[in-house]
Amino acid sequence: MSKALDVAMLIAVLIGLWQALNWYAGDVAISSPYDTTLHLIAQFERPRFWLHLAESIKAFGYALAIAWIGGIGLGVWLGAHRFAGEVAEPIVVALYSLPKVTLYPLVLLIFGLGISSKVAFGAIHGIAPVALFAMNSVRNIRPVYIKVGRTLRLTPLDAARRVLIPAALPEIATGLRLGFSLTLLGTLLGEMFASQRGLGFMIVNAIGLADTKTMMAVTLLLFIFAGTANAILLAGERALHRRV
């Protein structure tokens, strides 16, 4: 209960800071919390906003599926195969820390304008952290579990499904949570550069039109969405950690 109070107080402080910035920089630069909230609520009555929202959700959904499934697959393989992991780890780390925006023209040239390049861009943002966490979690599995699997002559597939993944799950969940945030960021960035639809496009368009209120309203919506999703994933992660 006191935790909820702490979080509420923090949110109050953040809103206070936001308001202070509004007073300092003026409505043109940053709209006030009250105006932004009203503007966000008003958006939900506009059919065009729903179009953008649906497009973003679709692109994000595909990108997340690719990043999560691909990342776990890659990470489990690299973790189980020690030498392959040793070869590939610095490469995956480099992919993780690369400013991927610079690669956006390449993604556009390969996938063309439209939803597929957004999905690809979101997925390359998210896949590296998922793979890195999955790899480390598999490496850190207690050797005795693996020995039991070998004693029982499990096939590699069965070993992965029944031993490796359950043992590695809590740490993989941490990777999935990070992958969620970064995939969202990647998808939005993809929408910001070369797209006519989606929330990222709405933001860039609003910046171009100096429509600060819309820019802030969409950003607020993203923050609320990301915060809620993160809280849910974090709760799931804690439950997994307790189980082990």
Binding site: L10, A29, L185, I203, M215, T219, L222, N230
Partner: peptide, 28 residues
Amino acid sequence: RLRRALDPFFATYYAVPFFVFYPVMIAI
């Protein structure tokens, strides 16, 4: 206590595209 309150904030932080605040930064 501050830390407990800040934890969810830190966890969400990297999902927000900060680049959108560039105009705000120019104003400041």
